[in-house]
Amino acid sequence: MSPVLAAAAPQANPGLPAQLLVILLAAALTDNILLTRFLGMCSFLAISRQMKTSVGLGVAVVFVTTCTAALNYLIHVFITVRLGIEYLEYILFIVVIAAFVQLVEMIVERFLPPLYFALGIFLPLITVNCAILGVSLFMITKEGYGFWQSTVFGLGSGLGWLLAIVLMAGIRSRIREDKIPEGLRGAGITLVITGIIALAFVGFSGMLTF
């Protein structure tokens, strides 16, 4: 049986919808891609200064991770594994992501100009957000993930990233006027806060197994 069918067949008792829900929650909360896997830190540190841009970038990331996780899963199963060229996956994945971001940019510019201007530079920047490539690379290391599981894993990871950056933007707007030691301003204090948020998230780890 092909891996797609094997994983999609309702063999486990909870059934596919329940399993997908668990994957979604686990990827977004207990296994948060930013707070426990450290992916997407660069844009997180740079962008989380303002709430509005954080939300814009976060939504774009959710959309792109979901779609590229699905696409890269299909590439993994039907092209690289079948031909035995797994070592080329890095290149294929990054090309898919770059091409997809380009495509999304063109579509948004053509049909939704207001959103295009609101997102501005962040849309192309997504290509180099390591969370996107990271989702694709972690996804293929998971055992028994089928097409839907992978897509939902992408969606959940994206939502987790959105949640983290919105949380951080809210906190940073509150501490803007505070007295922070000179050397700790900017990235330093953001890392400390991230650590504290991560403590809360790590507390939940192990509650959901998938």
């Binding site: 030691p181 050397g183 700790l184 204090i189 400390v192 991230t194 650590g195 991560a198 790590v202």
Partner: peptide, 18 residues
């Protein structure tokens, strides 16, 4: 665990910047 990494990097960045 992850939080330790964040705190350590913050300390190193603080020291370096200072």
């Amino acid at each position: 665990m992850p939080p330790g990494a964040f705190f350590m990097l913050a300390l190193v960045a603080w020291f370096g910047n200072a």
